[in-house]
Amino acid sequence: MEDRHEHEELRRLAPTLGGIPKCAPFVAPDAFFAHFPHRVQALVGTPERRPAAWWRRTAIALPVLAVLGTGAWWLGRKEAAPVPATAIALQATDLSDEDLETLDLPELLAGADGPSPWTDVHLDLSEAELLAYAEHEGLDLTELTDRP
């Protein structure tokens, strides 16, 4: 009843439009509807087993716990008693000037595990190169050579 009324209304309001037969002029490309569901399935992915609820909760909880744990460790580390500066100073002054002069670094490192990074270092610089380096760095050579 309502449809007929609407149809009559349409013919009165728009006689040209009302006189055009309704059809579906748009044609889908060949075999479109046969292939389309496969195309959609390929996009939504292969069948997957959704993880259980407890696993999803664990997956969320683990990073949160890791962050909290790191924070707690960081705070605990800061609160630990600091090493007194005097102890470091004492250790550093245990060596006399004479001891330092006689130190042979490659020899000291020879006993360490793995290859020593110092054994292959050769300072093979000419005098001119040394002077240029000192000039570039703004070094006062008299300070290095003159002893009190």
Binding site: A24, F26, A28, F32, F33, F36, P37, V40, Q41, V44, P47, R49, R50
Partner: peptide, 25 residues
């Protein structure tokens, strides 16, 4: 869990023509 993809495939097959008609217009 097992019927998810199959059911969705049937939904696509059921409604693809009518929806295509609308989208195409």
């Amino acid at each position: 869990e097992d019927g998810r993809h199959y059911a969705f495939n049937l939904i696509v097959r059921k409604y693809q023509r009518r929806l295509y008609g609308f989208v195409r217009r």
